[in-house]
Nucleic acid binder design. Structure first.
Lengths: 187, 187
DNA sequence: AGCATCCTTTTACATTTGTTAAAAAACGAA
DNA sequence: TTCGTTTTTTAACAAATGTAAAAGGATGCT
């Protein structure tokens, strides 16, 4: 397991000692496409790192489903509210392809956080990077039109464009599928 | 300084020992209304906790300025990109009233993070809470219309409503000032 | 291949929001 | 107070996006 983690970029900032500690609690798991790994109405007791495959996080509304996050190889994946507040969350996470993941129990992760300064700072940086990315997306919703947001997405995530249904990309960009079709048609 | 920090809610989760450590590096500072505490084009070397007064973070665009965050008493305040990537950021922070703040050098904060597990986890939780709040706002942009977002803001932040210019609230909600006026007029 | 299902595009129309400009109101300094 | 500045509202029109429904494509299963 240590050797396996060693090859995942997100763990690069950890020393060998910390990585060995982490490895003690980590498992390698596989789930098929379509699995709802995390459900909004449950406290989900695991934290994951995606090794291969892609996933999306979404929230259910009355008439619609909003996809607000895509995960690719190397990204971490967890229920915010389970992780942060130990309560059921607002997000579901669905695997869009067969996925291989590193799994660790939240309880184990928290004891690592509390017992190992380096891992605590590793977790801090993950949250901070995700925060910057989310805030920029929020700002872009105001500064940029839908067409420009789509062009940015195409440039930044060409792989996702090919592998994810357009209806999910539409809601990720904050528009309806009809609007996205219009943008793609160049009108 | 220790006694002063003791009374600020955000420090409640820290033990006395950690708080004493923190207090060694913290200063009490005051700045007048209108101060641009953090500028997008600079690496800002401080981290602040707001004790009194209010502030806003905004980004400059070609024709507009987008306010994407308001800070009230008890909130932390820093340049994301300085703090996280040690690069100039995209955000300015302006004090909207005379403010009293706790100031700590980023370099000192980082050495606290690296030397004190409890403080590292304190910083982790701050980023995580901010991340949840930002993500919910992003999701609300899709699920809710502008009128509902305004009503939510009125309910959740009545104090800000009274103290902040409507033009800033409009951009915070993701609409123009004209649209916000229409919503307020009930049309 | 053939059928059923789901995804994507297109069309027509309704609604929301943006833009520009002007008027009204609020605010601050002398 | 009074003047000048800034903020907020209002109006008219333009542009962007949403909604609903239908048609066309793609995909997967037997």
């Amino acid at each position: 397991m240590y050797q396996q983690l060693k090859n995942i970029e997100i763990f690069n900032s950890l020393s060998d000692d910390s990585l060995h500690e982490f490895a003690k609690h980590a498992q390698d798991v596989n789930y098929p496409k379509g699995t709802i790994l995390i459900r909004a109405d449950r406290v989900e007791p695991h934290f994951y790192v995606l090794q291969s495959g892609i996933a999306r996080a979404y929230s259910d509304g009355e008439n619609q489903q909003i996809t607000f996050w895509f995960g690719e190889s190397g990204n971490v994946l967890f229920s915010f509210n389970s992780y942060i507040n130990n309560k059921p969350g607002y997000e579901n996470i669905e695997l869009l392809e067969d996925c291989r993941l590193i799994q660790i129990k939240l309880a184990d992760l928290f004891s690592l956080y509390n017992g190992n300064t380096e891992i605590a700072n590793w977790g801090r940086k993950i949250a901070e990077q995700e925060l910057i990315a989310t805030e920029r997306r929020l700002i872009d919703r105001s500064f940029k039109g839908a067409a420009e947001r789509y062009q940015d997405f195409v440039k930044q995530s060409p792989a996702l464009l090919k592998r994810v249904a357009l209806k999910h990309i539409a809601s990720y960009l904050g528009v309806t599928q009809v609007t996205l079709s219009r943008i793609r048609a160049g009108k």
